[in-house]
């Protein structure tokens, strides 16, 4: 009898936490990650392989121009989704990969922006920059073009 009550309590706690956290994420619109470029960019589509290549520091061309990947760690959860779903590597392995490329060929590891404001500034300035953001953070922003959905909860 006591065990059944304990199980019921555990279930209630889990359900409450899920509802609170899920509700918070939904309220903030943080349930979808999108690939973004500046409004002046001529990039219209990138495949999953091209996106991964780009963030691995390899060359991806569009309209005769090499694109620049921009890592966005303005939110720890966003960075976690980037590692798990976009490059599919642990933080340490990803760091080693991009640093290894810098060491072997002098290629610049994808730079990181630490705030949404900085992301928008770089996208507005550099038409070859490609990054990712929460859908809700860029919705309705005329300076940003959404290329595709990268992750959805």
């Amino acid at each position: 009898m006591e065990r059944r009550a304990a199980v019921r309590y555990a279930w209630l706690i889990r359900a409450t936490l899920t509802a609170v956290l899920g509700g918070a994420a939904f309220a903030q619109g943080h349930d979808t990650v999108v690939l973004v470029v500046g409004a002046k960019s001529d990039v219209t589509a990138l495949s999953s392989v091209e996106v991964r290549k780009l963030f691995m520091g390899l060359t991806v061309m569009s309209g005769g121009r090499a694109l620049h990947a921009l890592r966005n760690d303005s939110d720890p959860r966003l960075d976690q989704i980037f590692l798990q779903n976009i490059v599919s590597m642990s933080d340490v392995t990803y760091e080693r990969q991009v640093l290894g490329l810098a060491l072997r060929q002098g290629r610049e590891p994808p730079p990181t922006v630490h705030s949404e404001k900085a992301l928008l500034r770089v996208l507005a300035y550099d038409p070859a920059a490609v990054s990712f953001a929460w859908s809700a953070d860029v919705a309705g922003n005329a300076d940003v073009k959404v290329i595709r959905v990268l992750w959805h909860e």
Binding site: R65, L70, G106, P111, L123, Y125, D126, A128
Partner: peptide, 18 residues
């Protein structure tokens, strides 16, 4: 990179391994 972005046509890498 929280400062202004870079020009579109080139990139520089400077890394130190110590």
């Amino acid at each position: 990179m929280d400062s202004a972005g870079k020009p579109a046509d080139f990139s520089n890498a400077l890394e130190f391994f110590v």
